[in-house]
């Protein structure tokens, strides 16, 4: 009721936005359609930040089995970067253009994104908490307005740097499905309410050839 009166008063009197009440009195309308309030997960099992920060330490290999669902940083590829002449020729042109897109693959599914995009993953990512920065290292294509670099099937992960920040989780509205068998009065209701992880692409950069090979 309160929000409606405020909105009506705004429409009627055409007061400038500077005359609005302070933001904490305004109705909370800046929320996605079809979603409920953000649910911040408590940090999960014995995952320690120090182990991630120092992946090269020998202790990282003796990580407990409970964290096996969290991917560990891969070792750097042993082979030196060797690109075909056409890639060597055109990668600086791609890097010179202002904005890029990437088709990043998470668990084998492609997400066509650019910097600043928000992705709602179709699942809740285990072992991450809001604020974590993920490094996306599988991509099938990387491009700008005029150039596209395609992988076969994936690009060399040294070509680009793509980082995503975990924004939190989102929950869908509760779904209730009635299960009814024929010729039987019994009705079973099944409730489901899934959670989804939200990511924001915080950085997307194309590396220089000198940095990759040097």
């Amino acid at each position: 009721m309160f929000s409606r009166t405020i909105r009506k008063s705004i429409l009627d009197t055409r007061i400038p936005t500077s005359a609005l009440p302070p933001p904490f009195l305004l109705p909370n309308r800046a929320r996605f359609f079809n979603t409920t309030a953000q649910h911040v997960e408590p940090p999960t099992d014995g995952f320690k930040a120090s182990e991630v920060a120092t992946p090269k330490s020998p202790a990282a290999s003796s990580r407990p089995a409970a964290t096996s669902s969290i991917p560990s940083p891969p070792p750097p590829p042993p082979t030196p970067a060797s690109f075909s002449p056409s890639v060597k020729e055109q990668l600086p042109l791609l890097a010179a253009q202002p904005s890029h897109y990437i088709s990043a693959h998470i668990h084998g599914r492609p997400y066509l994104v650019t910097q600043g995009d928000i992705i709602r993953l179709p699942f809740r990512m285990p072992g991450v908490v809001p604020g974590d920065i993920l490094r996306l290292n599988r991509a099938s294509s990387l491009g700008s307005r005029d150039y596209t670099l395609k992988g076969a099937p994936y690009l060399d992960e040294r070509i680009f740097e793509c980082r995503a920040r975990v924004m939190g989780t989102e929950a869908e509205p509760m779904r209730i499905k009635e299960k009814k068998k024929q010729r039987n009065r019994r009705t079973k209701t099944v409730r489901s309410k899934h959670k989804f992880t939200i990511l924001r692409i915080s950085e997307l950069k194309v590396n220089n050839l000198e940095d990759i090979e040097g």
Partner: peptide
């Protein structure tokens, strides 16, 4: 296709 680079 991802790993945690900086953890909170």
């Amino acid at each position: 296709g991802y790993y945690i680079e900086t953890a909170m």
